[in-house]
Design a protein around this nucleic acid. Structure first.
Lengths: 352, 352
DNA sequence: GAAAAATCCGTGACCGTACACGGAAAAATT
DNA sequence: AATTTTTCCGTGTACGGTCACGGATTTTTC
């Protein structure tokens, strides 16, 4: 506890063990070429003296260059994946001090082929570690299997797959986030109808990370509000007219005491619609702290958001790899569920 | 953007500027003994080459030992200040790598004399930087004035005072947290009565950081729920009998549609009482993610908590000082308001 | 038992910076 | 003009590691 100032160095260990620092270094890095008994002795002395290598001397001396690549969906400024990218950017800065470069490569999340292509590029020039946000189940499994075979550690962010040789996972508990969302939507009020707004793609075969979220939501509703009418509305987010038409239809009936929810980050589309139509009293709940969503929160067109720090998530993913690469540290926890932040108009301005 | 691998070193700069690395070093650290024109030239070359000192070589070479002390109220495991202490502990670990030792000293927050004593001890053996959680206004101002005079940077955590030579502040926006709290308590329901449970000390002259929070709460209520009856209840937290008696009195009347709130971290006392009396339907809202409070959340005796990551807060405070001491970095922002986290039974388990 | 191979280990040159030391050049003094 | 003082700057060592290189021992081979 009492911080010792007399740091013990590799030379101290060497002297004490009656060998040279070269030998100590060899056992430290398991580089072989050390007789069992020297090894033994050095290890014992290290233990006794409580030797900790000087991190900085180490980095300085070993001019190793590690490279980490992050494979995430394409993004444009302000959307969900741009947050992740920002997190990567941030940790890249820190990591560069450690001689680790971090590289972001993106793929079209609606196009398997582009994902395959990116994977191949990564495999062609193997990095020291990989961070991947999986959208295509089979292809990702295939990808990571090859990484694993080459001894390249990989970590999942956002969502994970059911293999188990991943190095770590950082993401939101999807099911629970849906459950929580339902509670926020419904608790203490008796809603007659809830629109679940989904985007067309949901219907297709892609592995959509938000399905678990929807499941959580539905489960809560079934348990706590069996009487509430839940209506699915499918929209094409790229087509404003379509959005307007579909929502007009959905809002047509008796729109008293209604709720609207989306399980991806696009709730601002709904907010926009509601602003246009000047609807009052609709309870709108969504996910992710995109700037557009926060604006909707401020203007009162969205009541609540559930957010995660995807930037921090990404940063932690990268850092976990860096720690491992540089310091050989194992992960603290393999599965890291980041907190679910509930935002409303009164606390959103203090969200990062 | 494209990560350059060819880091430029102090030698490159020296060569380019036609001087020796010693001179470059002198201008880098403003150590004088450099002619204006050499200085000029070096500065220009640094600019051109985009030279960034190698952090690690720098730390390694300068064997400076910095010491930071954190002055916070005494704590026992599980209470509010223990969270802060934990954050300090964490950042202490990181900081030790930088040759910075972090030391925690505590005072009795109910005893000015103990605070004075601690301050004197700190002043007697000046550290390189100070983190302080102020509870006594006058004494703290006096303390920091002396620190300032000695050129020791200090940062406030938790709450800040109205001087302005502090290096930084990390804390929750107290007024807004009260405002938010009121919204969480009252929004969408029509409460008849709200008990504001306070501890005796509130009545005395101590500078209580939670007054701003209470003000925020009251302001919201005045604006949005003028009809709600707000009743102050003073308890002695150390005396369970007193708590029970006072709350019994407060709950005596028509206890339909009631709310209870506390502005410090002791809401678990109320939860305990409610559990004992097996009251139903009371809306209980409080602050801070103490283990006891989280338990109350899980068991349903508290509906909502507003939390802050006081550990992260403390860590950031220490880190800001470390960055400044080691790297001479100025603060990003002087006032750092940490986010206000809304916790209920469904997201509290993922809160760190 | 000598030669070849394998094993083990010490040496020393770095990594990029900080800073003490002492000397050269310029300025001030006499 | 000679001397002293001041200003300015280059040199060299240390910080605590990493790793290539080559030498010394030991083991294997024939």
């Amino acid at each position: 506890m009492a911080g010792k100032d007399n740091r013990v160095t590799i030379n101290d260990v060497a002297k004490m063990a009656g060998v040279s620092k070269g030998t100590v270094d060899r056992v430290l890095h398991d580089r072989g070429e050390v007789s069992p008994k020297s090894r033994e002795k050095v290890l014992k002395v290290i233990e006794e003296l409580g030797y900790k290598p000087n991190f900085y001397a180490s980095i300085l001396a070993s001019q190793k260059k590690h490279r980490i690549v992050c494979v995430i969906p394409e993004y444009v400024s302000g959307d969900f994946w741009s947050l992740t990218a920002r997190g990567v950017e941030e940790s890249a800065e820190t990591s560069s001090r450690f001689g680790v470069t971090v590289e972001v490569v993106t793929y079209d999340q609606y196009d398997v082929e582009s994902f395959r292509h990116v994977c191949n590029r990564v495999l062609a020039d193997l990095p020291s570690g990989v961070v991947v946000a999986p959208m295509f189940r089979v292809e990702t499994l295939n990808f990571v299997k090859k990484l694993d075979a080459s001894g390249v550690p990989y970590v999942y962010i956002d969502s994970k797959l059911e293999d188990d040789s991943y190095f770590a996972y950082f993401g939101m508990p999807m099911f629970q986030s849906g459950y929580l969302c339902a509670d926020i939507m419904a608790d203490g009020r008796s809603l007659e109808k809830i629109l679940v707004v989904r985007i067309e793609r949901d219907k297709m075969g892609y592995s959509d990370p938000t399905v678990a979220r929807r499941t959580g939501f539905m489960e809560y509703m079934a348990e706590h509000c069996p009487g509430t009418d839940i209506v699915n509305v499918f929209i094409d987010p790229k087509n404003p007219d379509d959005v307007r038409r579909k929502l007009d239809e959905a809002f047509a009936g008796p729109s008293e005491n209604m709720g609207v929810v989306m399980f991806n980050s696009r709730i601002h589309l709904v907010a926009e619609y509601i602003r246009e139509r000047a609807f009052k009293g609709v309870r709108v709940v969504g996910f992710d702290a995109l700037e557009k969503n926060l604006d909707a929160l401020r203007s009162g067109h969205v009541q609540m958001l559930i957010a995660q720090h995807s930037d921090r998530q990404a940063a932690m993913a990268v850092n976990a790899l860096v720690d491992n690469l540089i310091h050989g540290e194992p992960v603290h926890k393999k599965d890291n569920y980041t907190q679910m932040d509930i935002l409303n108009r009164y606390n959103c301005d203090y969200y990062m």
